[in-house]
């Protein structure tokens, strides 16, 4: 089985993110980057599927500036066979459709049996890239996957629903799955892996010149504003209680 894993490089979890001077993106200087966590699980799932079947290939693909190559190398060190780097310096100016288009262009030539991505990114958290990518490639997809099993007909996957419920779906190949964190145990990078990764192929492809204007544009990036509003309710206890119920029902909408 040929598996493509689409990964994203995101700022480290504990990085102190600052807004860039123009207010359109974050200040990237001084930031350290790492693999998006759900993508790490997608890669792990791909590696395990390959190991279980004993054959196949795992190709990692990532769009972004040159720095994403370190994350690709790490993926190669963990066991991926090849890597594709889509050069894109201004990822911030693209919308989901734009990013998915970049990925689709690179992935199409590979014609994989299965595409895995994390269910969402740690930085923007839109959770759409995988789904849009599947649409662009015209293949079926399933989201929030906890477990994947290869069957003779295709795949049997376990989806996470809410409230501790799970759904089992059987689907044909080729397909795209977005993987949930925590389904597997991640592996650590080894010295042997890093050394082997040096000889593995890391292909760089240029992003096509922008054809479509972004349908969604980023207006302003800002840190969440903390606000506290206190309103004093007056009246007899009965009146106050009635007002509270009213507010909880219609303003806070929690009851």
């Amino acid at each position: 089985m040929k598996i493509v894993v689409a990964i994203k490089q995101v700022p480290e979890r504990d990085a102190q993110v600052r807004v860039a001077a123009d207010g359109k993106w974050i200040d990237e200087s001084d930031l350290s980057y790492t693999i998006n966590e759900p993508d790490a699980y997608a890669l792990e799932e791909a590696l395990q599927l390959k190991e279980k079947s004993g054959a196949g290939e795992v190709v990692v693909v990532c769009a972004g500036p040159e720095r994403v190559q370190s994350t690709l190398r790490e993926a190669l060190a963990k066991g991926a066979d090849r890597a594709i780097h889509i050069e894109a310096d201004d990822l911030g100016s693209l919308d989901t459709l734009g990013v998915a288009q970049l990925l689709a262009d690179a992935v199409k030539a590979e014609s994989p049996d299965l595409i895995l991505t994390g269910l969402q990114s740690d930085d923007l958290g839109l959770g759409q890239t995988g789904v849009v990518l599947a649409e662009l490639l015209d293949i079926p997809h399933a989201t929030i996957i906890m477990h994947v099993e290869a069957t003779s007909a295709g795949l049997k996957v376990k989806r996470e629903l809410e409230d501790g419920w799970f759904q089992y779906v059987e689907m044909p190949l080729p397909a795209l799955l977005t993987i949930q964190s925590g389904g597997n145990k991640l592996r650590y990078a080894t010295l042997m892996g890093i050394k082997k990764a040096r000889t593995k192929e890391l292909k760089t492809v240029a992003a096509p010149a922008q054809v479509r204007a972004a349908a969604v544009t980023l207006e302003r990036v800002y840190l969440p504003e903390k606000q506290k509003k206190t309103e004093m309710l007056t009246g007899s206890p009965t009146e106050v209680a009635a007002k509270i119920v009213d507010k909880l029902k219609f303003e806070a909408r929690v009851i």
């Binding site: 991640l186 650590y188 990078a189 080894t190």
Partner: peptide, 22 residues
């Protein structure tokens, strides 16, 4: 064992990932 990935231990992996990441 560790440099080749032959050592599989949940705690060990957790430690290495913590060192890699944090």
């Amino acid at each position: 064992a560790t440099n080749t990935g032959a050592w599989e231990d949940d705690y060990g992996t957790k430690l290495f990932l913590a060192l890699e990441k944090h």
